[in-house]
Design a protein around this nucleic acid. Structure first.
Ligand code: SF4
Ligand code: SF4
Lengths: 155, 155
DNA sequence: AACATTTAAGACTAATTTGTCTTAAATATA
DNA sequence: TATATTTAAGACAAATTAGTCTTAAATGTT
């Protein structure tokens, strides 16, 4: 699996929150996200704690509280979420799990892997949340096996 | 992590066996592989069982026994090993873990992911074992944090 | 036949990831 | 102040992956 479950959930949840952000609802309660996306509330809470401690989100307790991004969704790239949850190893490490990739003489797999690894990195670092949410309303970005971005146009 | 540990070990071990194959030693004892590559003998045994039951390898018991490929290393692509151990999900499934990728309207991530996913698939399906072992002798393909392909030229 | 070598199979343990639950702290509102 | 809402933190449990161990079966050698 490319991304851990926690990381996948983090991205899906981020897309939901980005969509709410566009509707002038910066702080979204975690419970709402977990309900809508059919994710475990407590598990999601822990995931969001990773995102907040990475500086990507801020939280507010109490009624009308919730979590919100610290930047506009247009400025948040998917790779920041991946980095906060799974780390950046995928984009730097050896596909065969050996230490010190490409440090000395590169191996014969290296060129191919380095190319593919960079394609991965480019994909995650060139895609912003708002790009997906705005396109998602037209293009059927699903956030769970039940709901699409389209369903979120009016909450 | 892109590939499971089992899958990584399978590839490393396959490269070792392919190198031995080129030296006219088709059947290699699992113990030799686990010793040289510093892998758990029993764990590796189970991994090889997956490869044999997938038809990729054959085994022979008793003295001078071991395991060997059923085809020449030139004809074995890395993706066959990945398929036998981790399956082909990586090359077909949604990066966000949602079912039915691209079935209905594709999502906005789809084009990017489909491209990257195909790059992965091409990398594994265009690379054969002998390509790595023969280049590996010149180019420093490591099989563990200790051993390079170069070290295997004379056993 | 007896013995040593080697893979097969499966039970078992350990580590990691995933998910649940409880309690505490912060905040808003009445 | 009392109460309801919400995140924080951490203990706990379940599931998956990784790794170990024991016994059996097959094969070659003496
Ligand atoms: S050079 Fe190739 S095998 Fe060596 S560490 Fe990098 S990707 Fe892995
Ligand atoms: S279209 Fe995109 S989000 Fe939808 S299943 Fe495929 S990769 Fe995943």
């Amino acid at each position: 699996m490319l991304l851990s479950k926690a990381c996948i959930y983090a991205i899906r949840a981020s897309l939901y929150i980005a969509a709410m952000h566009e509707q002038q609802r910066p702080f979204v309660p975690i419970r709402e996200v977990s309900d809508k996306l059919n994710l475990s509330f407590h598990f999601l809470t822990k995931i969001f704690q990773q995102l907040t401690s990475a500086g990507l989100m801020k939280s507010y307790k109490g009624p009308n509280g919730g979590i919100a991004f610290t930047k506009k969704p247009a400025e948040i790239k998917l790779i920041e979420i991946v980095a906060a949850v799974d780390g950046l190893g995928l984009f730097h490490e050896c596909v065969l799990g050996l230490p010190g990739c490409g440090k000395n003489k590169p191996c014969p797999l290296h060129d191919k892997w380095a190319y593919t690894r960079e394609a991965l990195q480019i994909m995650f670092s060139s895609t912003s949340l708002d790009e997906l949410t705005s396109k998602g309303k037209r293009m059927n970005l699903r956030l769970s096996d039940e709901i699409s971005m389209e369903d979120l146009i009016s909450p």
